[in-house]
Design a protein around this nucleic acid. Structure first.
Lengths: 190, 190
DNA sequence: CTGGTATTAGTACCAAGTGCTAAATAATTC
DNA sequence: GAATTATTTAGCACTTGGTACTAATACCAG
């Protein structure tokens, strides 16, 4: 009565996509066919059984939970530093740093690496970011190794400011740049 | 050999919390006891069986599935959102977010909250930060509750750009502001 | 030695399936 | 209309990861 097999399978796919928690038995009564028919349909459509579907949903969720890790301390590993002059850090982008939808790194991680480096390069007890002007030039993907260089451009001792340029590259392609205005407690006199 | 029942149960609880996908059998061999002992332990501790645990995780995920993007990817908790218009999130600053030297929040956390909110407010599959112009107006300390508002200011459908103003406050004092230029795949037409 | 706690073993049963065979019921084609 | 093919249904054995329950064994303390 429900019409063709094709139509039923279309609806089946839809129904399961909408609510993965439905059993074959429920589906059978919904479509007025036997449980076996539903099973055959699932076979043909390569739809896994209830438990597998649930497990998939759960696993996806679980990954997300693990992923929401806090950004802590310094982002990226500082490999070279000359205080009040320049610094370089590397940061390996992992799965946990990207949008799972498209695999592109979330901007704030790149910002965090740049900001951390700007703080680190200043030879002072206290260094705070006052302003930042940043551009995300190209998307960065999981697996990319981001190399970030910070260069101290100038200093305003009266206002206790230090100006820093930061550039990040992946395989020599510029992916991010920023200008940071930093506050520091004292001048850079050693 | 494994020590007391209490100790085992403590570890059991921990293990399952860490990885809800573990079966009684795996647990039994891990703790060098019989499967029955594990079952008894779960009874006493009122820990549901594997499938129920998985279902719980899946159900949690499923309910939380809001329209635009998974909430987990956002720094700070979104408490109000009107897609393509405005959004508000709160972020409680903890010890893990500050320089231990002076208790001041690291800039990139504030940036992350603002950036996340700017991404979230855009009603699109793909939203990426292109540029950001940010000011850190006043230091934020551990314990502060940062309330961040994002307002969509404009749109350039030809260049696929959306412009967003973001302001963060603590106790009504402005602590951060930023202008974000975002890229999106399509215009905001429904 | 007697108790009480802890552990292990074993059986029957369940949900929600898979895998397989066989039969019954359409639908299509010659 | 008969033959052929597609679709649907039935039935049975088996699988996982359990629950529920009973019974036996081990161990440690008083």
């Amino acid at each position: 009565m429900k019409r063709t097999k094709k139509e039923r399978q279309r609806l089946l796919t839809e129904t399961i996509a909408e609510n993965p928690f439905v059993t074959d038995e429920q589906l059978a009564s919904q479509f007025n066919v036997s449980v076996q028919t539903i099973r055959l349909d699932r076979m043909e459509l390569a739809i896994p059984e209830l438990r597998e579907r649930i497990k998939d949903v759960a696993a996806k969720n679980y990954e997300n939970e693990v992923k929401s890790l806090p950004i802590d301390e310094v982002i990226g590993e500082i490999i070279d530093i000359e205080l009040d002059n320049r610094a370089i850090s590397i940061f390996d982008v992992g799965q946990e740093h990207v949008f799972q939808r498209n695999g592109i790194a979330r901007g704030h991680h790149l910002f965090a690496q740049a900001n951390s480096l700007a703080v680190a390069v200043i030879d002072d007890e206290l260094a705070l970011t006052v302003k930042a002007n940043v551009s995300f030039i190209r998307p960065v993907k999981a697996g990319d190794r981001v190399i970030t260089k910070a260069i101290v451009r100038g200093q305003d001792d009266e206002k206790n400011r230090t100006y820093i340029d930061v550039v990040s590259t992946v395989n020599n392609d510029k992916v991010f740049k920023g200008e940071f205005e930093m506050y520091r407690t004292k001048g850079s006199v050693q």
